[in-house]
Design a binder for these strands. Structure first.
Length: 208
DNA sequence: TCCGTCGTCGGTTTTACGTCA
DNA sequence: CATGACGTAAAACCGACGACG
C-alpha cells in the first residue's frame, strides 16, 4: 500500500496562465459551458479499441468500459453531472499523479485533451485523488499511533506491576536504615502513576 | 492596506455500481 | 433469473482560505 500511496505533502506551485474555473457560488448548472473542447461524443467508440484478450473476464471488463462510455456520452450531452472514468483514463491520470500530485494549467489542458475530458474534470480528479491519498495516510498514521498506545499501555502495566512488587517487598522486610530504590525504576515512574497508586508520598518518605 | 484572481482543501452531495437477500 | 434495498467508491460541487499581483 505504502509504495502506491506515496504521500507527497509538498505543495506544487501552478503557473497562472489563465484557467477554466467556475466563479464563486456558481455551479456548472448555472454557468455557460467553459471554453474547452467537449469531445464526449468521440468517446464511443473510443480510441485504442479493446484488444480481445484470451481471458474472458478481461474481455468482459473491456465491454463494460465500452458500455460505460456510451452511457456517459448520452448523459454528458443531457448535462449529467457524473461520469465514470474508463480504466485507460484512470490509469493515465494515476501515472500522472505519481509523477506530480498537483497540476499546472498546461498539464491540466494536456491531460484533458489526451483523455477526452474537460480540464475541470481533470482538476477534480486530482483534488479527489489528493484527498484519498491523505485519507489513506491518516489511516496509516492512526494505525501506527494505536500500536504505540498499546505498547505504552503494556509498558505502563509492567511498571505498575514492578512497583507493586517492590512495595510488597519493602512491606515484608524489616525497616532498613536506607532503602536503595533502583534508579531506573525511580526515573521511569511518572506523577500520574503515583496518583493512581493513591499514595504519592510513600516514596518520598522512604527516601528521607 | 484592500481587492480580485487563482489554486487547493475539507466537507458534502450525488451517482454508478456491486452485493445480497 | 430479476429486482429492490443497501453499502461503497468516486465524481462533482461548494465555501473557505492563503498566496500573489
Amino acid at each position: 500500500m505504502a509504495d502506491e500511496e506515496e504521500c507527497n505533502t509538498g505543495l506544487g506551485l501552478g503557473l497562472s496562465v489563465g484557467r477554466y474555473y467556475l466563479p464563486k457560488g456558481k455551479s456548472q448548472k448555472d454557468s455557460p459551458p467553459p471554453p474547452c473542447l467537449d469531445l464526449s461524443v468521440a468517446l464511443c467508440p473510443r480510441e485504442g479499441a479493446p484488444k480481445v484478450d484470451s481471458s474472458s473476464s478481461r474481455t468482459m471488463e473491456e465491454e463494460e468500459d465500452k458500455k460505460r462510455d456510451c452511457k456517459n456520452n448520452s448523459k454528458n450531452i443531457s448535462g449529467r453531472k457524473k461520469l465514470r472514468l474508463t480504466k485507460e483514463q484512470s490509469s493515465l491520470l494515476e501515472n500522472s499523479f505519481k509523477l506530480h500530485t498537483t497540476l499546472n494549467p498546461a498539464k491540466k489542458q494536456a491531460l484533458a485533451e489526451q483523455l477526452n475530458l474537460k480540464p475541470r474534470q481533470v482538476e477534480v480528479w486530482f483534488q479527489n485523488r489528493r484527498a484519498r491519498t491523505k485519507l489513506k495516510q491518516t489511516e496509516v498514521d492512526c494505525e501506527f499511533l494505536k500500536k504505540c498506545c498499546e505498547s505504552l499501555s503494556e509498558e505502563n502495566r509492567r511498571l505498575k506491576k514492578e512497583l507493586q512488587e517492590l512495595r510488597s517487598l519493602k512491606a515484608a522486610a524489616p525497616p532498613p536504615l536506607f532503602i536503595q530504590i533502583p534508579k531506573a525504576t525511580t526515573l521511569s515512574m511518572c506523577p500520574s502513576c503515583e496518583k493512581i497508586e493513591g499514595k504519592p508520598d510513600v516514596v518520598l518518605k522512604n527516601n528521607k
